[in-house]
Design a protein around this nucleic acid. Sequence first.
RNA 1: GCCGGGGUGGCGGAAUUGGUAGACGCUGCGGACUUAAAAUCCGUUCUUCGCAAGAGGGUGCGGGUUCGAUUCCCGCCCUCGGCACCA
Length: 845
Amino acid sequence: MDEKYFPEQIEEKWQAHWRATDAFASAPKSDQPKFYCLEMLPYPSGFLHMGHVRNYSIGDALAWYKRLQGFNVLHPIGWDSFGQPAEQAAIKRGINPRVWTEDNIAHMRGQLQRLGISYDWSREIFAHRPEYYRWDQWFFLKMFERGLAYKKMTPVNWCPTCETTLSNEQASGGICWRCGNPVEKRDIVQWFLRITDYAEQLLNDMQEIEAGWPERVLTMQRNWIGRSEGAFLDFAMMDFPGEKIRVFTTRIDTIYGATAVVVAAEHPLIAAHVDKIPNRDAVEPFIVLVKAEKAQAKAPGAEEEKLGVDTGLRAINPFSGEEVPVWIGNYVLMEYGTGAVMSVPGHDERDFEFATKYGMPIRRVIASLAAGNEVTPRGPMAAAMTEYGVMINSQEWSGTRSDEAKRKMSVFAQEHGFGEAAVTYRLRDWGISRQRFWGAPIPIIYCDSCGTVPVPEADLPVRLPDDVKITGVGESPLASVPEFFNVTCPTCGGVARRETDTMDTFVDSSWYFFRYCDPHNTDAPVGKEIAAYWTPVDQYIGGIDHAVMHLLYTRFWTKVMRDIGLVPFNEPVKRLMTQGMVTNLIEGTNDWKRMSKSAGNGVDPDDMIGAFGADSVRLFVLFAAPVENELRWQEAGIDGAKRFLQRVYRHVWRWRASIANAPGEESAAGDFSAEARSLRRKTHQTIARLTADMDKFQLNTSIAALMELSNELGDFKVEPGAAAASDLYAVREALQALVIMLTPFAPHIAEEMWAGLTGSNAGLLGSQAKWPAFNAELAVKEELEIPVQVNGKLRSRIIAAPDATKEAMEAAALADEKVRTYTDGKQIVKVVVVPQRLVNIVVKG
RNA sequence: GCCGGGGUGGCGGAAUUGGUAGACGCUGCGGACUUAAAAUCCGUUCUUCGCAAGAGGGUGCGGGUUCGAUUCCCGCCCUCGGCACCA
């Protein structure tokens, strides 16, 4: 340990030490509890950004904390290395995507190591390497076997900028998750994974993780899954005897107000009977119009004008027997429910708008309960009434409370054979086909005689060819590589063609953290026993942007893995923490925006590490804001972090020689002075605070507590040369606790100071350093300053022992001179005494 | 429109879940050291009145419960995020 703190020297020194000693290597152990600490794996764009720094600093703080507490910690990292930027580099600059990716990884790995994040590098994984993606393909085959992977032609999200399809989650809000541009609909044949089979489980199993996941993530997933309870109802077709239109409704109680059935333009009934539709001349152009409208990218949130056309067909309301027209409407979605709705303009806002526009009748069949006794309001409706109430104009159902009627009516419908209670979901199956090169090939072969044939497991991996010209035009680049797609059928040996689409990269990240447990396994994606030891993940840390993409997919994937028999649980992640984003001021404005190259407000982590040291950067990032909040980048704040580290360093330097002679046992230290007792009290109070705050992920207040302890050490009035044995004991206790508890936030300087304090170069882990033990007795104050209020206003303070009786406190408060100026001559109504807290005297007059 | 999270000094944020509001840090201001600067250290920094001791006000707004409310209840306002023709 040198007198002066030079971050670059000690950071290099300890990084080398960690590497040489495999300090963070992990293996299953029976004598320690395990802790799996995971941060979302990065895409190797080439450069670490501050969001990464924040993510990994948070994770590393937890990993160190758990390690020092005696947990067997798994803390791995890898690369989400398939994806479009590599392909863009290939298109624009002719670089081989694999070479580009590997170079980027090499650079970013160096950056992570300069940050000193405590990863077990022996477990590093790479999504783009065949040793990894063969298991993506293996999972696909398992799903195919179970009917969970299927292919269909359907309108899918298409990003014209990225030139590929997107899943619904990736096109949420009508914009592409990667490039931010509006998406279109296109009819494309795609592979889908049947995530909807798991909709109910994805919803129900949330109770297992409710305590550990942020409310907003669960809410977003709940909304995304969009469960809704209602009923299917069949409207018989007048024109086609025996045929019916099935609608889905959540408001069966409004059925007597149905004045039409409205179907989606793509509804099969229309296509099946197009030549028998009375208004065919109007219907056909309308369908063309609606399809064109849907194919067009539209601004997010923009609601189309409601358009419709009367087909001239008629259907029968199964409850009332009434005849109603069948319309086609652009606002009815084929993808949701049954693609057909009953139109109840009186009690649904959309139907009201539609009916008003086309002059359709509007009928009131629910009367408001809030309106008191008037159950049959008169006059035309000015707007849809969407609340529950009492049914009116509804034949024998009139007078029934509409919320109660719902269940009875769906039972009635079922008994009479024209409907049933039903649940629908907004969630759709996960489209995973991508018309791109840089992804895992889908292991399927098309044979003219055998049809769709899965690649035999023994033939995995289906490797990506290495020297492909990627032009960015046309269909999937693999479709222009005959050596890739020309194959023989594994079943009949005949001529066949390989699937040329690749998988969505979210497949790779759906199960990667299982692979970390067993990264070199060549027989399975992960060994069952080893997975059972390490997983589920105890703490996961990442950005909120993956709330309904990655975090939903990985829950789904885990359930499939459970069904295959690979893992014994339902949920992959016990606790999730979503960090806030890192923002920086846009120059010349007052706007704080997410750091990014394009906005010109990015900060290069390497520059910061060079200027302040990795420890100061990490400490600042963790101290400046609670982990879930936005973090505003301010260099003055890193200065503050470095100042604090320097102060601690100076305390250690100043005392290290003297405390080497401190007695080993407390009993040999003799009597502690009031000053020494006070320091020890602060030390133990700090231990208690840190432990509680760390468990709650309150890293900012943890650091604040360490600063307080450091300040107290600075205020310790005894000089090292003149210190009694007891003083040295107290100071050593404080410094050791401070250094160990600082480790999660600034590990390099902590290692250096630990070496300085102990004279050992074995490192914290090598010397079995342990999180300090809390001693409640030492943390208790000898005397307390108790605030005294008169009528709730602070008027004075008294000194009391922590175990003072209520009576003694009351007497002392009433006797206090300042208090008496407020109580003299007044009637004391009541005295409230809260032991160890306060006294409040209530007076009158 | 629906769902969810928030409103505390100049700023980031604390407050042991009903008990001293503003911990810790940043910034600013004043000072020490220095020929000077950097670095470091000390003081000060919610607000009003006051030379001071002290007194009043104060956690988005208005009510309420309580000896006591940033915290609990009722009614508003503002703001951020997500979803959005989902029947």
